[in-house]
Amino acid sequence: MSVLALPASALASLGRATFNALAAIGRIAIYAALTLWHIVRPPFYRREFFTALMQVGWLSLPVVGLTAIFTGGALALQIYAGGQRFSAEAVVPQIVAIGMVRELGPVLVGLMIAARVTSSIAAEIATMKVTEQIDALTTLSTNPMKYLTVPRVLAGFLTVPLLVGVGDIIGIMGGFLVSTEQLGFNRASYIKNTVDFLQTPDVVSSLIKGAVFGFIATLIGCYYGMNSGRGAQGVGSATKNAVATASILILAANFVLTSVMFGS
C-alpha cells in the first residue's frame, strides 16, 4: 500500500462530503424556490393552513413559554453574578431584555420549533410518502407541494414571529421574577429600565428572525419528509436529518441576520 493512499482516501472522502453537502444545499434552495412559487398561485388549501397554524403556533406555546421563562431566569442570575465582578449588577434588566429579544428569544424559539415542529412535519410527510399517500394525492389531482408544503411553510413564517414575541416577553418575565424575588431588585424600576432600554429595532429584528427561522424549520421538515427513503428507517433518517439541518441552518441564519442588522 502506497504511503499516499491513506491521505488520498481521506481527501476523497472530504471531497465527496463537500460535494454532497453542496448538492443538498442546491436541492433545498430549489425546493424553497418552488415553495415560494406555489405560495402565490392557487389553489390554496385553507383547512390545511388553519390546521398548520394550530400545530406550529398554538400547540408550540407551552414549550416556548417554559423554555423562555427558565432561560430568562438563568440569564438574570448569570448577569448578576458576572456583573458583581466589576460592580455592574444593576444592568441586569437591560442585559436580560436585550439578550432575550435580540438573541436568546429568537434562537431558542427557533431551536424549539426545529425540535417540535420540524421533526413532526418530517415524520408525518415521510410516513405519508412511505405509505403511498403522496402518490395518492397526485392521482387525486392534488399537488402535494401545494397541499402539504405551502400551508405548513406559510404557517411557520407567520406564527413563529408571534411565538418569538411571546417568548421574548416570557423570558423577560423570567428575569424579572428572579431579579425581584431572589436578587432584591425593585419591581417598578426593573420594568422601567427594561422598557426604557429596549428600542424598536431590537423588537423588529427579533420578529424578522422569527419569520426566517419559522420558514426554515417548516421548509426543511417538508423537504426531508418528501425526500424520505423507504420503510421505518427512511422515516427515522428523514426526521433526524431534518432536525439537524434545520437547527444548523437556524443558527447560521441567526449569525447572518445579526451581522446584517447589528454588524455595523
Binding site: 405519508m128 405509505t131 403511498e132 399517500q133 395518492a136 394525492l137 392521482t139 387525486l140 389531482s141
Partner: peptide
C-alpha cells in the same frame, strides 16, 4: 388524472381525514 381512479396496495388513505372525506377527496376539490 381526472380520468383515473386508483386503489393503492396499502389503501394509502389519508390518516388525518375521516373516511368520507377520503372517499370524497376529489369531489371536494
Amino acid at each position: 388524472l381526472a380520468r383515473f381512479g386508483m386503489l393503492f396496495q396499502g389503501g394509502a388513505l389519508f390518516d388525518s381525514l375521516r373516511v368520507w372525506e377520503n372517499v370524497a377527496f376529489r369531489l371536494m376539490r
